[in-house]
Simulated assay, not measured.
Amino acid sequence: MISDEKGISMPVFLIERRYAAQFEASAERAGQINLINDDEGVRWLYSFLSKDKRKSYCLYDAPSEEAVRNAARRAGLPADVIVEVADRVSPDGALSPL
């Protein structure tokens, strides 16, 4: 769990998104997504984009999976797989909470 700006811990979710066409990132689009996320109470932490730009893997903190799905729907983004994550494993095998 990651704490928000108020110190409240929220679950962390990994979202796999599959796009029909190549994804094109822009500051304007990111701003629109962030406004919707704020309204839904979710926070976009960061994303990884596949080499072919047809998939992304995004890390969000949110109160629930439903909040993530609602934000994605409103933003017109796919949310094909949503997994709540709780721990991080380091290359040395150490396990630590997010």
Rank of each mutant, 00 (worst) to 15 (best):
Y57F: 15
I82S: 04
L45C: 12
E84V: 04
L35T: 13
A30C: 03
S47A: 12
E66T: 12
V68Q: 01
G31A: 14
W44I: 02
N70E: 13
S50V: 03
G41Y: 05
A75T: 04
V85Q: 10
D61V: 03
N37M: 08
N34T: 06
V85F: 06
K55S: 14
A79R: 00
S56F: 02
R54F: 02
E40K: 14
D38L: 13
D80I: 00
L59T: 08
E84Q: 15
I82P: 00
D38S: 14
L59Y: 10
R69Q: 12
A27V: 05
G76V: 03
A27C: 01
S64E: 08
A30Q: 12
Y46I: 01
L59Q: 06
V42D: 02
S50C: 08
A67E: 04
A27N: 08
D61L: 08
E65Y: 04
A79W: 00
G41E: 06
C58Y: 01
N34L: 10
E84D: 09
R73S: 11
G41R: 03
D61W: 07
N37H: 12
A30Y: 09
V81S: 13
E65I: 07
R54A: 06
V42N: 04
D61P: 00
D38R: 13
P78A: 08
A72S: 15
E84T: 08
R69L: 14
A67W: 04
E40G: 05
E84M: 09
A72R: 00
R29E: 15
V85G: 13
K55M: 11
V81C: 10
R54I: 03
A72L: 01
R69T: 03
A71K: 00
V68A: 07
L35G: 11
E40D: 06
V85N: 10
D38F: 09
P78N: 05
V81D: 10
P78C: 05
R29T: 10
V81T: 14
G41H: 06
P63L: 03
K55H: 13
R54E: 09
Q32G: 13
D39T: 11
N37D: 15
L77D: 06
L77M: 14
E28F: 05
A27P: 01
A86V: 06
K51S: 14
R69S: 07
N37A: 15
N37Q: 10
C58R: 00
D80A: 08
V83P: 01
S64M: 05
Y46N: 14
V68K: 00
R74P: 03
L49H: 08
K53F: 10
L77E: 09
A75N: 08
D52A: 09
Y57I: 10
C58A: 11
N70L: 08
L45F: 06
A75H: 03
N70D: 11
R74F: 00
A86K: 13
A67V: 02
E28D: 14
A67P: 02
A27L: 07
V68H: 01
N34W: 05
L77I: 01
A71C: 07
D61T: 09
Y57D: 10
Y60G: 03
V81I: 11
L45A: 08
E40Q: 14
D52Q: 09
A71F: 01
Y46P: 05
A30R: 12
K51C: 11
D61E: 14
D61Y: 12
D52R: 06
